[in-house]
């Protein structure tokens, strides 16, 4: 498969040690475009909309911040913890920077957990990129469907 120059640069910036020490691809060997296509198909299959999911993740982040750094129950269903780190993370598509943080949402109904950041929300909303399989910050469509 041939990559464009932009795709090559984006894929490179997603590798460990560029934007984050872990990278955004996990152990996923597929090209970014293939990951995005597969996840977009999964979103369609599950009847989910990227903007709506991003809105929900933002809602959980905002409500979680009321816990002042401690876990807090949100909507009588989710246990949300928010943590902040020093600095910002640039988007691999070079269209902005985002506060470095980690939001952990544990769904007390299904027992499933997702971890995401401000950058994750941007990647989902703007680029429809859920991160590669094995990335701790991956927003797996099936998990999102079960949780949200």
């Amino acid at each position: 498969m041939k990559y464009t120059q932009i795709e090559r640069a984006v894929q490179e910036r997603m590798r460990p040690g560029h934007i984050t020490a872990l990278g955004l691809l996990g152990d996923d060997q597929r090209p970014v475009a293939d990951i995005m296509q597969a996840d977009s198909e999964a979103f369609s299959r599950l009847g989910m909309d990227f903007d709506q999911v991003a809105d929900l993740l933002e809602h959980l982040r905002s409500a979680g911040q009321d816990g002042l750094g401690e876990p807090i129950t949100v909507d009588n269903r989710y246990l949300v913890s928010t943590g902040d780190a020093r600095g910002v993370l640039p988007c691999p598509w070079n269209d902005g920077v985002h506060h470095k943080n980690a939001i952990t949402v544990q769904d007390q109904r299904s027992g499933r957990t997702i971890i995401y950041s401000d950058l994750s929300i941007h990647l989902l909303r703007v680029h429809h990129f859920c991160q590669g399989k094995g990335s701790p910050f991956r927003l797996d469509p099936d998990t999102l469907a079960a949780i949200l």
Binding site: G17, R86, G87
Partner: peptide, 11 residues
């Protein structure tokens, strides 16, 4: 420096 000089913490 929090990132060890990778330019990602701004410290």
């Amino acid at each position: 420096s929090a990132c060890g000089g990778r330019g990602s913490c701004g410290a």
